[in-house]
Design a protein around this nucleic acid. Structure first.
Length: 1065
RNA sequence: GGGCCAAUAGCUCAGUCAGGUUGAGCGCUCGGCUGAUAACCGGGAGGUCCACGGUUCAAAUCCGUGUUGGCCCA
């Protein structure tokens, strides 16, 4: 064997060569071999070097969070990214492939707290902030290392030597820099906002950190006694603990309300509720009777005053100017009572309306969820624990109309699952709402795949987006770089704030001596740094950034900006980002927000948004349901390439994937077909000393099928190129796989088998070699981004000139090789062939036996021309002696079918006999007049229908464009060849059984248990000898019963045939 | 409660933008081929195109209302 076939020539590893190509595609073997090879050959580096001088493509990896491990969804995400990166590289780009990790934030803090057995922030303070942060860092780094291995295990070629980590000082500086830009643009402000507060974590949460779950909560109807008239306002709420903070009651100005005089147990009272709610409310309160006293609009009730129902229980309540009155609000609906208890110190909507009304904010709850002294009897209690007491008191004081429980969805902390409380606290904001128009304009600058994700989903989100609360009262995060005067007014910290943008600036401005190169920007190191300017001492606010802010600066962080501005100037903004659809409200949004607020631009130009990996029923994979499929299991059961190809063969644009084992197996089967196509020619090429790496289409003779498959290859390349251009990755994948299975395997390989099997060197054989080598080479490169291991293995076997197939360029269509007329003709041929095979089956004539004639009937000139053009090929493939093309097959025999709807009425009682006479008659017989009961009957045209049927031995099958008729009649000559072919087939099988080399010579003995058939076989002795590479005949098959030989008895068309073969040594 | 996406053969999906007899692969089944041999090819069976209503000569496709699932938001 020539050295050109010896590949994987690296030391220390199992040497692979063409001899080692397994009969069966075994992904695990292929992948471990290739993995080792890549390591030894530094294949990744080599691929990057090959494109080091190409134009840049700035891809930015959305950083996975380092609290978990790779699951099927992240495997899909990284596989898609990897495929795109490999493809971009092969199409001539220097691709930025720096992976990233999101390593700060509450999720990790909570995990570490669990490890340490902590329950609240006090435990952390006691343990010490510094060691706690150290633990968080260790946790994040430990997970990061494990995730590196996970991603590498599915063949992701990114720069694992140098990932960006959001905990790097360099990266954190990008966050500071961007934030200080935002401040320079006047978009950073401090303010009181109603936030979702986790009372356990004692921090505000972003909306997307709140998870909704169904829980049972109190459902109470409370009467607020009116101060200036008889009766009470009735409100409904599920949060009794917010009643102490009540400041006003809201109504809908337009809505109709009723004053209802209600009676229960002999007592009467007046209740105010919305008209639509009267029945329900009175039923809830178990009133016995009622009467509508007055009907009035919400507007009529504005300004009415009421007494706080817990006035006697709490120490303080909202009794300032304007409190305790009825106001209009647009959040009121005719639901429950139609009046809404409003506490601007808690609810977001209440807070907004309260601010509009100029009401003070009153909130008697601490950040940890405990009532303050202002709450009087409830002081010190945790709010939810106080619910029962408040309910009891309201009942005791006669303010409760009804109370029970309700099951509804309520927000919980995404990490520790504690029920959140709405609370007004001081927070830092990026006032994104001030630049909403810019956000929308910038959004329009980006191109999304699929487009609807941008124009529907993303636009809706931007339009509704509130200001971005970026502060968290926690530890493990990027410290907010805001320094405020020591004696600043706590409510107006933003007035004289200093926002530091870089480590250098920090070193310059702070009093303490620090080295900008080495300082760790984490807490608590930065907490004690002070700035003194103009006799004012500034201290850092204690908060850290919302972790979503970290990843929002990934386009800068990836490039090491601002400490390194070289690549930034060349590359920024990102050319492409790829994430799942949950990131519409996550990373896609945070980057747009930060880019717009900091530099007035969107940080990415194109978005590819994929879906989620669900289970086979389309349901979310979850631990509790137990339907999780891990990537490890999929790799074990199928392989890396099959998994990747499976994931990428489904729609990559916005649609979820229902993972299914059978589908994965299906893909593996298809890759196996590719494997078979790949190894099919290897043995022949080796025998002939043909090097596929040197394949030259001009050396040798190209036959029609060669030209056809090469043309199809060009068409597929065009299709694939167009698909990639729009990131329709699955269309590209499926086009390649279809080409391999349908065109190459099913059609081309079948067509060139005989040429490969020829012993002598010939132009036509070299043409077939060159064609198949070309097709394989390009298919391998087309599929390389999708199935990197398999294609590497094949490339190294066939060629191996480059260190890795992934350094090569992606195939592009060549017009010279494209012939659409030929493709159309062959499409016709395949239809004809299929119909002929069907007709043969109906005639009971197997393909091995020739048929004397095939007739194609068509009235389509293009079809007729195609059949004439490809006559030889059709004859060969359908194994026919002659082929005719005609507009009308004149051998058809017309037979009459009686039409009883006409015959019945005309012949009455004789109809059955007439029917029998008509049935099966020829047109001539009918025209001559049929005789029934001795009388010739007259038949009208409508009484008889003629059906054209082929003559005996001929069967016809329709195809798209006409009908194919196969004449399967037998002649001695055909029988003779048929039997000979049957014998050849069996001898070949015996050669295979003996595991003989393809070129091995044999001696053959044949004994046939039927004199006539024996004669047929004798007639073709030379054909048989040639096909099976026999040098001599044995007198008796039994003579082959040697150590090396084989004797077998076969049943050929019910005739016993004994065959013996003996290798010639 | 709201927005977006999806629902087509037993399974996975095309087809929907632009209305005109629903297709493919897998699976099942029957047959064929084969020095690619645990591969390959053909035939067959298999459909309430989620439901209901509307527009239209004509609806899987367009419109409306629901149902189920997914994501996001409240």
């Amino acid at each position: 064997m020539g050295t050109r076939f010896a590949v994987f020539k690296y030391a220390g590893a199992e040497t692979q060569s063409m001899d080692d190509i397994d009969d069966q595609y075994t992904p695990a073997d292929v992948e471990s071999t290739v993995d080792e090879y890549w390591d030894d050959a530094n294949a990744y580096e080599s691929a990057k070097e090959a494109h080091a001088d190409d134009p840049p493509f700035f891809f930015v990896d959305g950083p996975p969070y380092t609290s978990g491990q790779m699951h099927l969804g992240t495997a899909w995400n990284k596989t898609l990214k990897d495929a795109v990166i490999r493809h971009k590289r092969m199409t001539g780009h220097r691709v930025t492939d720096r992976p990233g990790y999101d390593m700060h934030g509450l999720p990790i803090e909570v995990k570490v707290e669990e490890e340490l057995g902590f329950e609240n922030k006090r435990d952390i303070e006691e343990y010490g902030m510094e060691p706690f942060i150290q633990k968080c860092k260790e946790f994040a780094l430990r997970n990061r290392a494990a995730m590196d291995e996970d991603f590498k295990s599915i063949g992701v070629w990114m720069d694992w030597e140098d990932p960006y980590e959001t905990i790097d000082p360099e990266y954190m500086e990008a966050a500071w820099w961007a934030f200080s830009n935002v401040a320079d643009n006047g978009l950073v402000e401090q303010g009181k906002r109603s936030v979702s507060q986790c009372p356990r974590c004692e921090t505000g949460l972003a909306n997307n950190e709140v998870e909704y779950e169904h829980v049972d909560d109190p459902s109470i109807y409370v009467k607020f006694p009116l101060a200036d008239r008889e009766g009470s306002l009735v409100i409904w709420t599920t949060t009794p603990w917010t009643i102490p903070a009540n400041a006003f009651v809201a109504v809908d100005e337009e809505l109709t309300y009723n004053a209802v005089r209600a009676e229960k147990g002999g007592e009467e009272e007046v209740l105010y509720v919305a008209e639509e709610c009267v029945e329900d409310v009175l039923q809830e309160g178990r009133y016995e009777d009622y009467e509508i006293e007055a009907e009035l609009s919400g507007g009529d009730m504005l300004g009415w005053e009421y007494d706080h129902p817990l006035a006697d229980r709490v120490a303080e309540y909202a009794d300032f100017e304007g409190a305790g009155q009825v106001y209009a609000a647009d959040y009121v609906e005719a639901d429950r009572t139609g009046l809404v208890h409003s506490a601007p110190g808690h609810g977001e909507e209440d807070f907004h309306r309260g601010s509009e009304l100029g009401l003070e904010v009153f909130c008697p709850v601490e950040p940890n969820g405990e009532f303050t002294a202002a709450a009087g009897e409830y002081a010190g209690q945790f709010v939810r624990d106080a619910n029962d007491g408040i309910i009891d008191d309201l009942v005791a004081d006669g303010h409760m109309l009804a109370h029970g429980t309700v099951n509804h969805s309520y927000g919980h902390c995404w990490r520790c699952d504690t029920g959140i409380i709405q609370l007004v606290t001081d927070q830092w904001f990026i006032s994104i709402t001030d630049v909403k128009e810019d956000l929308l304009d910038n959004m329009a600058e980006s191109e999304w795949h699929p487009g609807w994700a941008r124009d529907n989903r993303f636009r809706d989100f931007i339009e509704d987006a509130p200001d971005w609360n970026v502060s968290r009262q926690r530890y493990w995060g990027v410290p907010i770089p805001i320094w405020v005067p020591e004696d600043a007014d706590a409510d107006h910290l933003d007035e004289d704030m200093i926002v530091v943008g870089t480590r250098e600036e920090l070193a310059e401005r702070v009093e303490e001596e620090i080295d900008p190169e080495t300082i760790d920007l984490h807490r608590p190191a930065v907490d004690d740094l002070t700035i003194v300017e103009d006799d004012t001492t500034y201290r850092r606010v204690e908060d850290v950034f919302d972790v979503w802010l970290d990843s929002s600066v990934a386009t800068w962080g990836t490039l090491g900006y601002p400490s390194n501005d070289e690549s930034h100037d060349e590359l920024w903004p990102a050319d492409l980002i790829i994430e799942a659809h949950d990131q519409t409200r996550g990373w896609f949004w945070s980057q747009l927000g930060m880019g717009t607020a900091a530099v007035g631009e969107i940080p990415y130009e194109e978005v590819l948004m994929h879906g989620f990996a669900n289970d086979e029923d389309g349901r979310k994979m979850s631990k509790s349901v137990g339907n999780i499929v891990t990537p490890e299991e999929a790799i074990d059961r199928a392989g890396r390439d099959p998994l990747r190809t499976y994931l990428l063969s489904h729609d990559q644009q916005g649609v979820d994937l229902a993972f299914e084992w059978d589908g994965l197996g299906e893909i593996q089967g298809k890759l196996n077909i590719l494997w078979n196509v790949f190894r099919f020619p290897l043995e022949y090429m080796e025998l002939d000393g043909y090097d596929p790496a040197e394949a030259d289409l001009s050396d040798g003779e190209l036959e029609l099928v060669d030209e056809w498959v090469l043309s199809r290859l060009q068409s597929v390349e065009t299709e694939v190129t167009e698909a990639w251009a729009e990131y329709r990755v699955s269309d590209a994948v499926n086009a390649i796989i279809e080409f391999v299975t349908k065109d190459v395997s099913r059609f081309y390989v079948k067509a060139v088998r005989d040429r490969m099997w020829e012993e002598a060197d010939s132009d036509t054989k070299r043409g077939a070699y060159a064609t198949l080598a070309t097709v394989l080479d390009e298919v391998i490169r087309l599929l390389a981004p999708i199935a990197p291991y398999l294609t590497e293995r094949m490339y190294q076997t066939l060629d191996g000139e480059a260190t890795t197939v992934h350094a090569l360029s992606y195939p592009e269509p060549d017009d010279e090789l494209h012939d659409s007329d030929l493709e159309r003709d062959v499409a016709v041929l395949r239809n004809v062939e299929e119909a002929a095979a069907n007709a043969r089956q109906q005639a009971g004539r197997k393909l091995r036996w020739p048929v004397p004639r095939v007739v194609v009937e068509t009235d389509d000139e293009e079809v007729a021309e195609a059949v004439r053009n490809l006559e030889e090929l059709i004859l060969d493939r359908v194994n026919a002696r002659t082929l005719e093309v005609t507009g009308a097959f004149d051998a058809l025999v017309e037979t009459a079918e009686p039409r009883m709807s006409a015959i019945g009425p005309a012949f009455g009682g004789d109809a059955q006999e007439v029917m029998a006479a008509v049935q099966g008659a020829t047109r001539e017989e009918v025209d001559a007049g049929l005789v029934v009961d001795g009388e010739t009957v007259e038949l009208d045209d409508e009484m008889v229908e003629y059906v054209a049927e082929p003559p005996e031995h001929v069967t016809g099958v329709d195809f798209d464009g006409g009908t194919v008729y196969v004449d399967a009649s037998l002649t001695p000559e055909i029988e003779s060849e048929g039997y000979a072919r049957d014998v050849i087939r069996r001898i070949q099988e015996m050669r295979k059984t003996l595991d003989l080399d393809v070129e091995a010579r044999i001696r053959v003995g044949v004994a046939v248990d039927d004199e006539r058939v024996a004669g047929f076989v004798d007639d073709h002795a030379d054909l048989i000898a040639g096909e099976v590479r026999a040098d001599a005949w044995l007198d008796d098959p039994a003579d082959a019963a040697t150590d090396d030989g084989l004797v077998e008895e076969w049943d050929v068309e019910d005739v016993v045939v004994t065959l013996g073969i003996d290798p010639v040594s």
